[in-house]
Nucleic acid binder design. Sequence first.
DNA 1: TGAATAGTAAGTCATATGCCTAAGTAATTT
DNA 2: AAATTACTTAGGCATATGACTTACTATTCA
Lengths: 112, 112
Amino acid sequence: MTYYSTKLDSIFQALADPTRRAVLAQLSSGPASVTDLSQDFDMALPSFMGHLKKLEDGGLITSKKHGRVRICALRPAALAPVRGWLEQQNDRWQGRLEEYVTTLAKDEDYGT
Amino acid sequence: MTYYSTKLDSIFQALADPTRRAVLAQLSSGPASVTDLSQDFDMALPSFMGHLKKLEDGGLITSKKHGRVRICALRPAALAPVRGWLEQQNDRWQGRLEEYVTTLAKDEDYGT
DNA sequence: TGAATAGTAAGTCATATGCCTAAGTAATTT
DNA sequence: AAATTACTTAGGCATATGACTTACTATTCA
């Protein structure tokens, strides 16, 4: 399995949960501490920390300790592999559409 | 949890596996039977069928039985919710960037 | 210095996931 | 009609996931 594929695995896995997507939405307003981030979620802190770990392991966020406070931030371009994959998928689909359109045009040329 | 969020859960979950992404890539060339699709994968048929079910439950493909053969096809626009979410996320990030740039401009105005 | 705050580590539980094999059913071919 | 093909169902196994509670450590505040 290529690195790219493994990367996509962990990114999509990280995104496959509403809590984690909500965290990314919050972080798009700027860096925040774990405590700040956790305010909007009705779950135990260790559970919430687990989600942050998943996001960091997927490369979507970074975190750094400042004293007793851990600050999390979005990683710009973190979702680039997702965009890349969507584009790839779309190109293949578009390629097939163009082939189909070309075939239609030929059929029309030969048609009565 | 909104329908949209649940939808994203199952789509991202479906995409969080290299086998399922590879199936989507294959189907972007056009509809195919289960047997045709499974040729490229070194796994037991029931396991492979499980992946197809996940893709179908996520709304990314459709399948229809024709006699004893089941034909699978991509659903156009199936990935629209993913694009939508990325756009949303990007807009929030861009909005913050613009706010940041505006703040910088103000600082420069007031600066010596 | 003790109290409070902000995480962190460990263990548990129920459920989900990704694979397997075996056996079965339905449709087609011989 | 029997054999073959193309799935489909069921059960099992090991691992992962998402939540919990408890207890702990590190840092800051009073």
